[in-house]
Design a protein around this nucleic acid. Structure first.
Length: 469
RNA sequence: GGUGGGUUGGCCGAGAGGCGAGGCAACGGACUGCAAAUCCGUGUACACGGGUUCAAAUCCCGUACCCACCUCCA
């Protein structure tokens, strides 16, 4: 079975046929770096990271572009409110985003272009659109340049909307527009805006409109036509509709497949409307580990809306610990088993991912193998258990969830800390083992309770006690 | 007004005409000094009303409720 993906433009699942056999070019709309990322923001990154890893595993040579919008109205407004330069805010939030994504093991993109670094490419594209008759400088002297939606007959094709049914665009003063739905490619500088937020152009000083950057950067890094364009559902319109219109009007094939991830909501609502600080990534990571947060996101299908709750997050984390528990115990039990092991991905796992990245079913396949592996352990079948470990780990790896991946690695101080805790706990466990040997169970249980109170759990195994947090 | 998505057991979350994905929780059993972990077992779930069919959570018609987008939101 080959990979099949749901294409938003076609509204159906289609076989994935790359433009160039064996390679895949992907462009994902990243964030506007105007505030600290919350769990909703990073879902998109995780979803497309799974797509990327699955393509890589399937043997594709993947070029993965995820942009950053580092100039827009909100950045300018927020920076002004905070009394600092807009680029200072954008740079800091870009940094925070990087930290958040690293904490949940999202691979770095092949390139991560930013709008402000591509003004020449953007102006070049605008020039072509004007020459071809699909764009025009505003007649009111504002310095704006608009895309002429009436001039491009295919406008609305991505989201199947008729121009006449659309509400007028509100992103610019409509006076200079030929049609209220026309959208800005270039925004002339307003006197209220800082000079640093403008670039010279044939139409006057200004800055790029939102949509044009993606068309320009996708073209630069992936070529005139490429395979997959992704982003959150909210971007279908206007952002992606406009991107496609601009690029195709300029003579480019643009994306073959459109993929959109659904929202994470809270209390049934889109996160941006009711966001408390508790859902910012650093806050969530005080409650669960990054790998557990990632598991929570991967366990849901990317096109399903996820209703965020800490209860559900805790459940997911508990479920993931079951998998980790198996790996830990099996590793300890099979460390002496000789011979190389070739990890095999379960057929159900492969089929699940090939079917529009069916991560829920893929996770189900992992649990099935964990149960099997636990059975092997219980029966002392160590060779089979070791094979299960290798396969479970390989499948987790495809999902970016292998606990042994150095990307999750401890920092130096964490490693020293856990070594110290390990030494202390071992000392107590030795005392407990002595007490148990002497049948002094009251004392043994007291030690166990003492450790439990500190958050350390004890398991007695045939090979002696083990501890975990 | 236009466009798209949704409603599944105590909870989370798949599936898309016929065997109850899976996880968490609960209950029983095995194991254990007691636990924990693990294994085995235990469930008449598909918003509502009609219809099609030998058979519907799944297809059709209708209804209700929820969510998203309609020009600078992942």
């Amino acid at each position: 079975m080959t990979l099949r993906l749901y294409d938003t433009a076609a509204r159906e699942v289609r076989d994935f046929v790359p433009l160039v056999a064996g390679s895949a070019g992907i462009y994902v709309c990243g964030l506007t770096v105007q505030s600290e990322p919350h769990v909703g923001h990073v879902r998109s990154a995780v979803n497309f990271d799974v797509l990327r890893r699955w393509l890589l595993h399937s043997g594709y040579d993947v070029t993965f572009i995820r942009n950053v919008t580092d100039i827009d109205d909100k950045i300018l407004t927020k920076a002004a409110d905070q009394g600092r330069p807009w680029f200072n805010l954008a740079y800091e939030m870009h940094h925070r985003l990087g930290e958040a994504l690293a904490a949940i093991n999202v691979m770095r993109p092949t390139y991560e272009p930013a709008a402000t670094g591509h003004v020449p490419e953007i102006l070049d594209l605008i020039r072509v659109l004007i020459e071809r008759g699909y764009a025009y400088p505003a007649a009111d002297g504002s310095g704006d340049v608009y895309f002429d939606v009436r001039a491009w007959p295919a406008y609305g094709e991505l989201t199947r909307q008729a121009v006449d049914d659309m509400e007028p665009a509100g992103d610019a003063d409509p006076r200079g527009k030929r049609d209220p739905r026309d959208f800005a490619l270039w925004k002339g500088r307003k006197p209220s805006e800082p000079e640093t937020a403008s670039w010279p152009s044939p139409y006057g000083a200004g800055r790029p409109g939102w949509h044009i950057e993606c068309s320009a950067m996708a073209g630069k890094y992936l070529g005139s036509a490429f395979d997959i364009h992704g982003g959150g559902v909210d971007l279908r319109f206007p952002h992606h509709e406009n991107e496609q219109a601009q690029s195709r009007a300029a003579g480019h094939g643009f994306a073959s497949y459109w993929m959109h991830n659904a929202w994470i909501t809270t209390a049934g609502e889109k996160m941006s409307k009711s966001l408390g600080n508790s859902l910012l990534i650093p806050e969530v990571l005080k409650r669960v580990r990054g790998i557990e947060l990632r598991f929570y996101m991967v366990a849901a299908h990317y096109r399903s809306q996820v209703e965020f709750s800490f209860e559900a997050l805790d459940d997911a984390a508990a479920g993931f610990r079951r998998i980790e528990g198996f790996l830990d115990r099996a590793d300890a039990a099979t460390s002496d088993v000789a011979g190389a092991v070739t990890p095999v991905l379960c057929a159900e796992f492969v089929e699940a991912l090939d079917d529009d990245l069916g991560t829920p079913a893929a996770v189900g396949a992992i649990y099935d193998l964990v149960r099997e592996g636990n059975k092997h352990l219980a029966e002392g079948n160590l060779v089979a258990a070791r094979g299960a470990v290798a396969s479970v780990r390989a499948m987790l790896g495809v999902l970016g969830l292998d606990p042994a991946d150095p990307a999750w690695g401890e920092t130096g101080s964490d490693a020293r800390l856990s070594a110290a805790v390990d030494a202390l706990v071992r000392g107590l466990l030795a005392q407990r083992t002595e007490a148990r040997a002497a049948k002094d169970f009251a004392r043994a249980d007291a030690i166990r309770d003492q450790l439990a109170a500190a958050g350390v759990e004890i398991e007695d195994t045939p090979d002696g006690p083990r501890w975990s947090l």
